Amino acid sequence: MAGIRDAAHLCIDMQNIFAKGGVWETPWMERVLPVISEICARYRERTVFSRFITPERPEDRRGQWQAYFTKWQRATRGNLAANALDIVPELARYSPPALIVDKPAYSAFFGSRLGHLLVERHVDTVVVSGAETDVCVLSTVLGAVDLGFRVIIVQDALCSSSDAGHDALMTMYRMRFSEQIDLVSAAELFDMWRPD
Rank of each mutant, 00 (worst) to 15 (best):
D146K: 14
A8Q: 10
G3V: 06
K71V: 06
G78A: 10
V48K: 00
Q15A: 09
G148A: 10
L169F: 08
R176F: 07
C11G: 02
D6C: 13
K71G: 05
L99V: 02
R74V: 05
M192F: 12
I12K: 07
R121P: 01
R31G: 09
H122Q: 13
L118F: 06
N16Y: 14
A41H: 12
I53S: 09
F69E: 02
C159H: 00
G143A: 15
V137H: 03
D86R: 05
R5P: 00
H116D: 15
E25L: 08
M175A: 15
P55E: 01
L142I: 03
A41N: 14
I152L: 06
T54G: 02
L33I: 09
C40D: 15
D134C: 04
F190Y: 12
A2N: 15
D156T: 07
D102H: 05
A108W: 06
A67W: 05
I100R: 01
E38Y: 02
Q155G: 10
E30H: 07
M192S: 14
A75Y: 01
R61C: 00
I100L: 04
L189P: 01
A7L: 05
Y68D: 12
S161A: 11
I181C: 13
Q73F: 02
I17A: 09
P96L: 14
F49Q: 00
R74S: 10
G63P: 01
R44L: 03
G78T: 07
I17Q: 06
R194T: 10
Q64Y: 05
L142H: 08
F109L: 09
R74N: 00
D124E: 12
F52N: 02
Q66N: 13
A75V: 07
T54R: 06
D60K: 11
A187P: 08
C136V: 06
V35C: 00
I36H: 04
S50I: 09
A84S: 15
A144S: 09
M14Y: 08
